[in-house]
Structure formats: structure tokens, C-alpha cells
């Protein structure tokens, strides 16, 4: 099953490679990983999406917790949570397709952030499934380039 694991860790050089190294050394799977500083500049938040059965996820959480730089680990999937991912996509347009593309952008609430004659650069935030649905709404040749941030998330409990 897919799990979103949120990790608060010391904002130290090498902390990211400790986490990445742990996953490769123990054969855990990473679907996506995002990391950035928090409002406390000495801490970073890392959000990892991984797939595994309950035993594997339990091991991932425990092994992460064991890393000295890690302050806190939460399996967001086990709680009420919000997840979002950001997509930037270059979508080709022509006089024939422009209206159809714009209709689809409207339908998904995607925003045009740069418009050129042959292509739009659009942004869309949402759950991973929404991003997938959005991308599959176009023909493969319409999508010139795609850049996804991977999932980030927060626990809903205050």
C-alpha cells in the first residue's frame, strides 16, 4: 500500500543522504521525496511516498526514527491528512487544439502561467491522482514536458 511519511530532521549537510542511503541499503522503495526548510531554519521537513506492506512501512518508520538527525517521523497515511503535489507542464497548442486545451485546463482548474504561440506552460496542484488524470486527458504528443514536485503533506490534526 502507498504511504506518505513525513519526517522532521536536523537541517544539516548530509541529512538527506542519510535518508536516501537508508532506503537504498535496505531495499525500501521511494516513489517520491521532497525536502525543504521549515519556519525553524534549523529543521527541514521531508515528505516521502513509499509503497510496501504493513511490515515494511513499520520498518521504514522505525529505521528513519533511528537516524540520529531525525527528530520526528509520522506516517501521514495513518491519520487524517492533506496531500498535494505541484505539476508544471508544457502543452503544445495549435489553432485546431487551443480551444479544447483551454477547456480541459478549466475543467481541472489548471492555471496558464506562460503563454507562447505554440505552447502553454501550466501549473496544477492537487492529489497525485488528480495530476495523473489531468495528464491522461491529453494526447501524448500534446505534452512536451512535465515536471512534478512529488507529494508533500500535513496532518490535519492541529
Amino acid at each position: 500500500m502507498r504511504h506518505i511519511i513525513s519526517v522532521i530532521l536536523e537541517n544539516e549537510a548530509g541529512a538527506l543522504s542519510r535518508v536516501a542511503g537508508l532506503f537504498s541499503a535496505r531495499g525500501f522503495n521511494i516513489e517520491s521525496l521532497t525536502v525543504a526548510a521549515t519556519t525553524d531554519s534549523t529543521l527541514s521537513r521531508m515528505t516521502i511516498v513509499s509503497v510496501g506492506d504493513d511490515g515494511i512501512i513499520e520498518q521504514i518508520v522505525k529505521q528513519l526514527d533511528k537516524l540520529i538527525d531525525v527528530v520526528k517521523v509520522v506516517d501521514l497515511t495513518a491519520t487524517e491528512h492533506i496531500e498535494r503535489e505541484l505539476l508544471l507542464a508544457k502543452i503544445s497548442i495549435s489553432s485546431d487544439t487551443q480551444a479544447d486545451v483551454e477547456a480541459k485546463l478549466d475543467q481541472f482548474n489548471a492555471k496558464i502561467i506562460d503563454a507562447a504561440e505554440e505552447a502553454y506552460i501550466v501549473e496544477l496542484a492537487g492529489k497525485s491522482q488528480k495530476i495523473k488524470d489531468f495528464l491522461s486527458a491529453f494526447n501524448a504528443e500534446q505534452i512536451i514536458e512535465v515536471s512534478r514536485t512529488g507529494v508533500t503533506g500535513v496532518c490535519q490534526k492541529i
Binding site: E58, Q59, K62, Q63, D65, K66
Partner: peptide, 11 residues
Amino acid sequence: IDPSQISKNVV
């Protein structure tokens, strides 16, 4: 003493 050892090989 190490939680990661528990239920790693045997539940």
C-alpha cells in the same frame, strides 16, 4: 532497546 529490531524478522 532498539525498536527497529522488534517485529523485523519475527512478529
